[in-house]
Amino acid sequence: MKSGYVRVLFVMALLVALAVRAHAATLKYGAELTRKEVTKVSDIADHPDRYVGRRVLVEGTVVEVCAKRGCWMDIASDRKYEKIQIKVVDGEIIFPLSARGQKALVEGVVEEMAMTYEQAISYHRHKAEERGELFDPSVVTGAQTLYRIRGLGAVITD
């Protein structure tokens, strides 16, 4: 009887180890990528109306990750100084902080975020707090419209 329990515990430990190992080897998040053609982030920034509501595949270097929940990450655009946010549903996909600096292929739907001045202040204050930085309200000068991607699946590689 005792050896039976030991076997059960051993198998459980093995399954846990396999699951953790599988995670370490794969850096895939959420749904499988289905799009083949990569859309340039700069193209989304230049022509957001063409893309809002559409499913796209984008690629770029991960330049910031939500440190608390891993519920968003920013990826660099193909154009200098530009980036786009990938937002995922809390808990459905969790991006690791260790992804910063790695390459990401992300599939998702382009969203428009229209914010009043007050909402923009609140949004940027929250982002600064997440980064552990002091918030400078002067960076927000009025109402803002942000375009981001609601992430459905991602592959992150070195």
Binding site: M12, L15, V16, A19, V20, I94
Partner: peptide
């Protein structure tokens, strides 16, 4: 990592 089911795969079944 385990509680929030980061591993997915077999851990989901566990």
């Amino acid at each position: 990592f385990l509680h929030l089911n980061h591993p997915k795969k077999i851990w989901t079944w566990m």
